[in-house]
Amino acid sequence: MEEPFVSPDEPLQCAGCGVAIQTEDKTKQGYAPVSALSRDVVICQRCYRIKHYNEVAPVDMEDDDFLRILNGIGATDSLVVMVVDIFDFQGSWLRGLPRFVGNNPILLVGNKVDLLPRSINPNRVRNWMQHEAKQLGLRPVDVVLVSAVKGQGIDELLQRVGELRRGRDVYIVGVTNVGKSTLINRIIHDYGSAGVEITTSPFPGTTLDKIEIPLDDGRFIYDTPGIINRDQIGHMVTPQDLRKLTPISRVNPKTYQLNDRQSLFIGGLARIDYVSGERQPFVVYVANALPIHRTKLEKADELMAKHHGELLAPPVGEAVKLLPPFTRHTLKIESAGPVDIVISGLGWVTLQGKQKAILEVHVPKGVGVAVRKALI
């Protein structure tokens, strides 16, 4: 009979998610069979299942655990790299970051640039991110655009990290699902580190504890767990539906000419009512797989009642019952320029903003809705 694994003074960590390895309780995080300990690279059973079977496993890490790790950064002398999802900028924003990192400089990285339309100017995106960051109380030392999946912009990122860190450690931070682990795997590949591959998946909470990646000068890159922004709609749907609302390829905008008293449904996850205003285009930026339905405002309630989970999907079938009840957000658009109506974790709808308009946005309770300066 094999002896149970006993942690040494320095606990063995899962190379995929950073959690301490244990061999005694299959129901607890960090479990790995004793036979796995003889491998060159040890990962926990949860990471093994995500990597090989694309399974999702629940985690019991609380917000306080994430905050504890982030709070420690302020006591260090390091470079902080904050990763956001360009396609879900507001939804992926790490709130209150300056109070966690102290006086450490912050490099802002916009990931998933490959999802934006080809016609958009990268310099415009950088300037827009600088503007939005300032509005949210952050003044980054620079902005870099990347696609971790495609490898786009990684050379520029590595160059800026090398210039800005000045021999210091690097902490990479962000909320769940911004592609942090995929990005770090790219960096590891370029640095030539062997025996490390951080677990990646489309599901929130993949990294469970701080992961250390050694650099040539004796310093480290630290991958920190992603904090969950609970106003993102992705945390309210099933894993199957999450795959449908998460863009995996360049988003094709869909334009609808709307008169007032018309409504747009984005699957069965959101509804936008054009209450009053002149006829104008509504340009929808969401995952290509999500169906859009247009109807008269007077018929919208009936359509929702009869077809939610069927014609209006995702969510599909019984998953409708998992969603919180829908709440209404009234928006008055008075801007002289284009604006985006943002639904956290789902996407946005652009209006030209040439005339006043009143909209009502219906989303599951707790999902963030905001108006911002148009990205495109």
Rank of each mutant, 00 (worst) to 15 (best):
P4G: 05
P4E: 08
L12N: 10
L12M: 15
G16W: 05
V19W: 14
V19D: 02
I21C: 05
E24P: 01
K26G: 10
K28L: 11
P33L: 06
L37T: 13
E55Q: 15
D60Y: 11
G74Q: 11
D77E: 09
L79Y: 08
D88Y: 06
W93P: 13
W93K: 11
G96Y: 07
V101D: 09
I106C: 02
V109W: 00
L115N: 05
L116R: 04
S119Q: 09
R126H: 01
Q130P: 01
A133Q: 12
V141I: 15
V144T: 10
V146L: 04
E156N: 15
R160D: 13
V161L: 11
G162A: 14
E163F: 12
R168H: 13
Y171W: 11
Y171K: 03
V175H: 04
T176M: 00
I188K: 00
I198R: 00
P202F: 04
T206E: 02
I213Y: 00
D216G: 13
D217V: 07
F220A: 03
Q232E: 03
I233C: 01
L242N: 01
L242V: 04
N252V: 13
Y256W: 14
L264Q: 10
I266L: 07
S276F: 14
Q280E: 13
V286I: 14
N288E: 09
A300Q: 11
L303N: 07
A305H: 11
G309P: 12
L312I: 09
G337D: 03
I341M: 08
V342A: 03
G345M: 06
L346E: 07
W348A: 12
W348N: 14
L351S: 02
I358Y: 01
G366L: 09
V367F: 05
V367C: 05
R372M: 07
